[in-house]
Amino acid sequence: MEKIELPAIEENFETLMNFLEERVDQSGLNAENLMLLKIAFEEIIINVIHYAYGEGGGPICVLVDFLEDPKRLFIEVRDHGISFNPLERADPDIHVPAEERNIGGLGIFMTKKIMDSVTYRREDGMNILTMIEGITEE
């Protein structure tokens, strides 16, 4: 298990993305799944950066691990901010005409579509979002 913890601010966005990229680029995921995984991760960390804390700020913690049998990638994103389950947000209606599109909620919707599993729990004053993606050997 590898871990990074940083202040949840936009200036740390690239560092957090790089932390994930460096660990997953050689993981056996194909190019398409890698891109999708990064999208899902971006949506989750940007949610924390933008909404978890008020002016005082606070940390974001990311854990990455590879699990066996079956081989899968485990990503956990934790914050100590206000209790918030992003998965409860209603999915946007992706079938309405463009003119009526409400553009909120799209990121979480994509995350749920992309990952094999996304779960939320509130524990010890933390929001903990766990994402799992299976890795099929090519």
Binding site: A31, E32, M35, L36, K38, I39, E42, E43, I46, A98, E99, R101, I103, L106, G107, M110
Partner: peptide
């Protein structure tokens, strides 16, 4: 492209003009 980018694209459709047609050209499969 993440949802932030998609929001910019839907913005193009919604705000630039009533009858604007939006195209995406030469995009990779993913």
């Amino acid at each position: 492209i993440s949802s932030a980018g998609l929001r910019a694209i839907v913005f193009a459709k919604q705000k630039i003009g009533q009858n604007v047609q939006v195209y995406l050209i030469g995009a990779a499969k993913e």
